[in-house]
Amino acid sequence: MFIQPWDAALDEAEWQTWIAEGHDFGLLSVNGLLGRAPLTAPTHFVPDGERLLIHLARPNPVWESIEYDPNVTFTVIGDYAFVPGPWRAKPGTPADEGVPTSYYAAVQFVCLAHIVDEPEAKAALLRRQMAHFQPAGDHAPVEADEPPYGRMLSGIRGLTLEVREVRAKFKYDDHKPVEHRAAVADRLTDRDHALDEPTARQQRRRLNRIGPWKP
């Protein structure tokens, strides 16, 4: 992922907070076997210290590739919007000469994958996931030797992704003048399509922290 200086995370807390705010669904990318294309798998995940916890169905085709090469990337994308060219036209130039762009936040975790197959270890992984996604505890006990989940464990495999590197990008035109960024955020709010409003919030948040961009 290419990151311009003005698109970089301002600190580790920025991307960590963004993930913690509910961005817990991403795309697992694994290296393809020799002569084959890379494989991807969309899935929820749970941050757990320096690891990400996920599980996938046993028939998923990613397993053979992970066993061959456990180096993987997990990507989370959100708060994105298309910004039309006229919104970005420079002052004094025709609106139709403006160059469109995409705004988005993205965090990539470069990881070493560890497959979890032992039943109790899988149950422990699922308990951690359930505590994240169903904190009210409104589910049956997740135990390796008890129904209903015990008999289902053979149909899944767990993964702990040991995070080796984090690449975070917040692409919201932070190198543009303050007035320009504020105006685009207002236009996103007015348009209010799909993820326009959360995108506008990210742009305003970055604007408040950065102010005028200083190379």
Results as ranks from 00 to 15, higher is better:
His175Tyr: 11
Thr189Lys: 09
Gly155Trp: 04
Lys176Ser: 10
Gly150Ser: 04
Leu159Asp: 00
Gly155Thr: 14
Met152Arg: 10
Asp173His: 07
Tyr172Gly: 01
Phe170Pro: 01
Met152Trp: 04
Glu165Gln: 15
His175Arg: 12
Glu179Ile: 04
Ala168Ile: 12
Val178Lys: 03
Lys169Glu: 05
Pro148Ile: 07
Gly155Phe: 04
Val178Gln: 09
Glu162Phe: 13
Asp190Asn: 10
Val163Leu: 06
Asp190Ser: 13
Pro177Gly: 06
Ser154Tyr: 09
Glu179Thr: 06
Gly150Trp: 01
Tyr149Met: 15
Gly150Pro: 01
His175Phe: 01
Arg167Leu: 14
Asp173Ile: 00
Ala194Asn: 12
Ala182Val: 12
Arg191His: 10
Arg151Phe: 05
Met152Glu: 12
Lys176Asp: 07
Leu159Asn: 00
Phe170Arg: 02
Gly158Trp: 09
Ala183His: 04
Arg191Gly: 06
Thr160Glu: 15
Asp174His: 15
Arg164Lys: 14
His180Thr: 07
Thr189Ile: 05
Phe170Ile: 15
Arg187Ala: 05
Ser154Cys: 11
His193Ser: 13
Glu165Thr: 14
His175Glu: 14
Lys169Val: 06
Asp186Ser: 10
Ala183Trp: 05
Leu159Thr: 00
Thr189Trp: 04
Arg181Ile: 09
His180Arg: 09
Ala183Leu: 11
Ala182His: 15
Glu179Leu: 12
Thr160His: 15
Leu161Pro: 00
Lys169Met: 08
Arg191Asn: 12
Asp190His: 10
Pro148Gln: 14
Ala185Thr: 01
His193Tyr: 07
Val184Leu: 10
Val166Lys: 13
Asp192Glu: 11
Arg191Cys: 04
Asp186Val: 12
Asp174Ala: 13
His175Gly: 00
Pro177Ile: 04
Glu179Pro: 07
Asp186Thr: 14
Lys176His: 09
Asp173Ala: 08
Glu162Pro: 04
Arg151Asn: 06
Ala194Cys: 07
Val163Asn: 10
Arg167Phe: 05
Pro148Asp: 07
Leu159Gly: 00
Gly155Gln: 11
Lys176Asn: 05
Leu159Phe: 03
Ala185Trp: 00
Arg167Ala: 12
Gly155Glu: 10
Pro177Ala: 09
Lys176Pro: 00
Gly150Met: 00
Arg187Leu: 06
Arg187Glu: 05
Phe170Asn: 02
Leu195Asn: 09
Met152Asn: 08
Glu165Asn: 14
Val184Lys: 00
Leu195Arg: 12
Gly150Lys: 04
Pro177Met: 04
Arg167Asp: 07
Arg164Cys: 10
Ile156His: 02
Lys169Asn: 10
Lys169Arg: 15
Lys169His: 04
Glu162Ile: 08
Ala194Tyr: 09
His193Pro: 04
His180Glu: 09
Gly158Ile: 03
Arg191Pro: 01
His193Thr: 15
Arg167Thr: 09
Val184Met: 01
Arg164Ala: 11
Gly155Val: 13
Leu153Thr: 08
Val163His: 05
Met152Ile: 09
Ser154Lys: 14
Ala194Pro: 02
Gly155Pro: 03
Arg151Met: 06
Lys176Ala: 11
Ala182Ser: 13
Asp192Val: 08
Val178Tyr: 09
Arg181Thr: 01
Val166Gly: 08
His180Met: 11
Arg167Glu: 07
Ala183Asn: 04
Asp173Thr: 05
Asp192Tyr: 07
Arg151Trp: 07
His193Gln: 13
Pro148Phe: 05
Arg191Thr: 03
Glu162Ser: 13
Asp174Asn: 11
Arg187Cys: 03
His180Pro: 03
Arg157Gly: 00
Pro177His: 07
Gly158Phe: 02
Arg167Trp: 10
